[in-house]
């Protein structure tokens, strides 16, 4: 049995070629984006090789820029509020879907994940018409609403896998011991899902923080960071500053995504010595 198993898809040579391919694929995935930080330190306006020399002037130029500071603040505020709402609502949707499983809960969960399958432009204009009809019109508030919608799939996907990852028997035990549904959710399910909640919030935060197209339709007079970058792309002289700013944004995303992954994985380890 064991001898046979090893003959199946594990030919070492094939695996080695594939490993080489995966390596090349990762280079393809990362190389273009890595050029942004590389050129952000380059002492030249034109992003071309060979590099001219090392400079921090493009980073320095970011600091005395009130419009940039305002856009950054807007982005952080929008992302924090949208991510909090999306995580809260998303985890209730995921809990209802995974644990209660009524057709309604399944339908809501499916609907909440639909924005993955909508072109950003369509979501943007649909929300634009919506906020003009009932809401505040194009504004930061409108962007928050749009980003709740845009981040909901992230939150639901993360929380669904989180709730599915611990055994239902823990909640059943609580119910058998007399806890009602509320107590079970509050004292058992949510604490167990806490790592998922934190990582969902962080991932939703960067999703909103980096989001451009929905915000592009819903923006009023106060820009978010991606909108600010978009407005600067027209000016070639601004290119190096944009790359410095872009490098900082990439750094924030990578750190938050890495942290979210660490928290998520730690949460998935089986509790020590139980079971």
């Amino acid at each position: 049995m064991t001898a046979r198993v090893s003959t199946v898809p594990k030919q070492p040579r094939k695996g080695r070629w594939l490993a080489l391919y995966v390596l090349l694929y990762l280079v393809f995935l990362y190389l273009p984006t890595l050029l942004i930080p590389v050129f952000s330190f380059n002492d030249s306006i034109a992003p071309v090789f060979p590099l001219k020399g090392f400079t921090l002037q493009w980073y320095a130029s970011l600091f005395d820029n009130p419009r940039l500071a305002e856009a950054a603040l807007n982005s952080v505020m929008v992302a924090a509020i949208a991510a909090a709402i999306a995580t809260l609502v998303g985890s209730l949707i995921a809990y209802a879907d995974v644990r209660r499983g009524s057709p309604l809960a399944n339908a809501i969960s499916l609907l909440a994940r639909l924005p993955i399958l909508l072109p950003g432009v369509v979501l943007g204009i649909a929300l634009l018409v919506g906020v003009n009809l009932v809401g505040p019109g194009p504004s930061l508030g409108a962007i928050v609403v749009g980003h709740v919608c845009f981040c909901l799939p992230t939150a639901v996907v993360v929380m669904r896998s989180r709730f599915a990852a611990f055994p239902r028997s823990l909640e059943e035990a609580a119910m058998d011991l007399g806890a009602n549904e509320w107590t079970t959710l509050r004292r058992i399910a949510l604490p167990l899902a806490l790592p998922g909640l934190v990582s969902s919030f962080m991932l939703a935060f960067i999703t909103s923080f980096d989001e451009f197209i929905v915000a592009f339709f819903l923006v009023g007079t106060e820009p978010t960071l991606p909108i600010y970058i978009w407005s600067q792309l027209r000016f070639p002289r601004q290119l190096p500053s944009v790359m410095a700013l872009g490098s900082l944004i990439l750094l924030v995303s990578v750190l938050l995504a890495g942290l979210a992954e660490m928290i998520r994985r730690r949460g998935l380890k089986p509790p020590p010595k139980s079971q």
């Binding site: 209730l92 909440a112 649909a126 919506g130 009809l133 709740v148 909901l152």
Partner: peptide
């Protein structure tokens, strides 16, 4: 009480998805 729990559990998600996604797409 379980039924009430289910109703309240589905309420926020139901509201958000039906207004932000269903309603706006229908509006379009």
């Amino acid at each position: 009480r379980g039924r009430l729990f289910d109703v309240l559990l589905n309420l926020p998600g139901g509201l958000i998805t039906s207004t932000l996604i269903l309603f706006t797409l229908a509006l379009l």
